[in-house]
Design a protein around this nucleic acid. Sequence first.
DNA 1: TTCTGTAGTCATATTTTTTAGACTAATTGA
DNA 2: TCAATTAGTCTAAAAAATATGACTACAGAA
Lengths: 101, 101
Amino acid sequence: MTTEKENECPAQGLLKLLSGKWKPEIFLLAVEKPLRFNGLLRDLKGANKQSVAVALRELEDFGLLDKKVIKLKPLHIEYALSEKGKSLIPVFRQLELFLEK
Amino acid sequence: MTTEKENECPAQGLLKLLSGKWKPEIFLLAVEKPLRFNGLLRDLKGANKQSVAVALRELEDFGLLDKKVIKLKPLHIEYALSEKGKSLIPVFRQLELFLEK
DNA sequence: TTCTGTAGTCATATTTTTTAGACTAATTGA
DNA sequence: TCAATTAGTCTAAAAAATATGACTACAGAA
């Protein structure tokens, strides 16, 4: 995943990014509201720190999530959908439409 | 992949199906024309029998491809997009639109 | 009847992904 | 000052995906 070999299929990179065990669900949760690490760990039943950390980092690296330090009450970190991330929402909707048929 | 545990995310099953190393490309090739096993093996540089066989079976099981024995010249087998498979094309198009931005 | 092309299966190895659990480090509340 | 909450990292193990190479089975051509 680090060394980019030529992607035969144009969609493959995105599909791979979105296809980990936890990433689709993380993305969908991010549509609702900004995410926090420990909250995710609680919400994703069965997930572990490492996997969540890696998923968040990859979604951020791909530009779908923005990471932001919130200097408030309990100083913490929020992951929110970027503009690019938001523009992916319609694709998910169409995916869901497909599944409903 | 055999034992269906509750999919937290509705899109997860489809994303997982489409996210193998070869499946996206196989799907896209199937959009062009029906596929044959050995032809695929030649076209997918670096792929091996086993992976291709598994990919075809899973795409078929999911209902995206129809398998058909062609009783002609060299008796052979064709994998063609099913109606369900065809209805997935627009989703791929939207995915590509997203990637072009 | 042996050789080629068709489409695979099977057992095993290698690689990649995911998990488990110990550990770090800064901030906050008591 | 001590404990909890925050957000992680790190190493090692387990599980899942993928690859390798031998083998099967059928049909048609030489």
